[in-house]
Nucleic acid binder design. Structure first.
Lengths: 221, 221, 221, 221
DNA sequence: TATGAATGAGCATTCATTCAT
DNA sequence: CATGAATGAATGCTCATTCAT
């Protein structure tokens, strides 16, 4: 064995090492996701407080203790679910496809996107997150910082641009954004609370809300 | 003792009985309210699940067991609080004072009313009710039937009337109502979640929202 | 009913009240003792860490939860047992019966007392207390302050008095006390560790130790 | 390959084997010591029950599972630590250096040795061992057989010899030894329990105790 | 009716030990 | 032999609810 082969071997073993590490990391990530997925499912069904660690472990097909190899405690599961929601939001928040559209289509497209994504899984985890956020200060802060604030920061650019182009009136942009988001959020909550009419007309909402938002309901002859 | 006296006594005792009953009922109602008031206070502070019966009993200045003489269980307390909110809503929902106003003033007045009432006690019990409603089917149904539905039914009359008078456009009234309520509900939730801008501009909201709702944000030259 | 009778009635009801309270207090004290007695028994048998709350509850014939109506937690039980030991020490520490004796008899009497009391219940709880004291800072401090220090303070007076009367040599009283207590403590521990010879000759110890302490083992012709 | 080469090879391989074995054994012993050293350190700091296998593994820089390749279970670690203490005792118990001294110097030297060795590492593992010994029958027996009994057996020879030479009085040697050891043990425990005076005067103890033991405290004119 | 002590099911969390890799 | 993820039994503690007084 010459020096060169020694180096090669070494390099090979390094490669193997790093490959092992990579595999390890993937396994860990997979297990984490498995647990989070199960937790999301059970939380969505029974709510945070009525869900036991045993429930989640059973749903994930693992032992109770294993969960604690991946998460500090029950609350940490909730926080991680928030992160997951955040990530999936970020990933899906692809505005490029909307940007070529005219203004009205953009708003409609965006609303359709938001309303459909949540409807898709029946507002499951959203319900639980909101429930806990209402009552848990830590989660509340996290939710605002990770999900709501970033959205506002991004949305502000759009609204500002539209205001500059005189597409929308020169009104308080911050309040406008909040009124808009609030409307969507509130409608989702009304739906969750069991408003059947909203359920029936959910698909019509994007168009309806866009018109309402842009034109108002006042009848000006 | 003759028959007559028997009757008299009887009649007297009945009277006394019924008087006693009346007093009793009042006492019972008073105690119930005492408990509910305490429960509301503690729930608002700590949330439903972190509040113990002992907490409530202590806040009400009575023994744990006494609560169970007036309420089936902890959940029943929550339901009764809902009823209380409902009643106070009904009582305050005095539209007569608004009815003389012109349309825009009416909307502004109504919004101001709703937004201020909740802000007043810092959204305390509202937060908890929402939290539980998100997660508890029974409560959800009750909340919808007792609070949301009645509001919609009443509001519908107003909107219909305005539509007939061509004050608002001939659009889907049901969706309009829901969008309006949703907007208010959503803004309250954004405030609860810690949106500081909303907190600062809360007083400006009624006027802003009314204009937004009636005129839209689109800039039509 | 005149004022006087009113006062009497009042005074009577006060009396009843205070009697009820007194009974209550006795019941509470009784239950506390019941639990402590059970805890002492089980701790002595299995040691602190291997004893479960369920064990103690079972031994006391009550439910697990009841224990927590009387003690903060498992550790508090241990601390209370210390207090109990302390109290019983104080009560039994009646030196008056020794004080009439001559010096040598006094020492013998005291040693006999200490060695017999502990032997009586087979060093049971003493073993556990020592075990925990070795390892638990809080308990250690408490044990020293409540049991050891008071003993030293009292003993110091005796030794000082004997030194003044030239009954004992003018040596370091503090070290002497500690050596004496240490000897007793150490012998108890050797017994606990299973020294059979000590067990056999336990009754001879008081006399032996007294002579050893007073005269030394050195053979001075 | 002929027979001879076979033998050679065989013999060679045997040699290699046995060399390998020797190396292996050394490696095993080294790993065992590494683990025991770590365990001793952590036990001394946190106590037996509050120390986890993970703690020890981390302190030893190895994986949890590895410990179980060298020790049956957590208790076995404790037992092995006892053995280690025993060995180090045996090794240090070199009385030859004392044997030339006169009697009083011998006792002083021995006491100084015992008291300093333990003080040196702040009674760390001693505290834990005593704690467990108090409560664990198996450990108790082992401790007595491996540490206490051998000491007594050896000490007996010395005392017997001194008695024969009329250096010490013709008293019960077994009780004398126990009283002496007990005194040292008890003083160590008082120190552990936080007696500050003992801590200050620790260095003066050997001389003080020797005089006390030999001459007694009685003032005989 | 009021009390509050007693109950005991229920749960989050820990950790010694195992075992596949 | 080393690893460390997986296991799941075990436990301290909580708290809604009951019930004797």
């Amino acid at each position: 064995m010459n020096e060169c082969s020694f180096i090669l071997v070494n390099s090979y073993s390094l490669k193997v090492e790093s490959m092992k590490d990579a595999v390890q990391e993937q396994l860990i990530a997979a297990r984490r996701n498995q647990i989070l997925e199960a937790a999301t499912r059970v939380f969505a069904e029974k709510g945070f407080h009525l869900t036991t660690i045993k429930d989640i472990a059973k749903a994930a097909g693992i032992a109770d203790g294993t969960i604690y190899n991946y998460f500090e405690n029950k609350t940490a599961l909730m926080l991680s679910i928030l992160d997951l929601m955040n990530e999936s939001d970020q990933r899906s928040e692809d505005f490029s496809k909307f940007s070529a559209m005219d203004f009205r289509s953009f708003i409609k497209g965006y609303m359709r996107h938001r309303l459909m994504v949540l409807k898709a899984d029946n507002f499951g985890i959203f319900r639980v997150v909101i429930s806990e956020v209402m009552v848990n200060q830590e989660l509340r802060t996290l939710y605002y910082q990770k999900i709501i604030e970033p959205t506002f920061i991004m949305a502000e650019q759009f609204f500002q641009q539209w205001a500059d182009q005189h597409i929308i009136k020169p009104i308080d942009i911050n309040l406008t954004m909040r009124a808009t988001s609030g409307m969507i959020l509130g409608l989702i909550m009304l739906h969750i609370m069991g408003d059947t009419l909203l359920d029936e007309k959910w698909d019509a909402l994007p168009d309806f809300l866009t018109d309402l938002l842009l034109d108002g309901i006042g009848d000006k002859p």
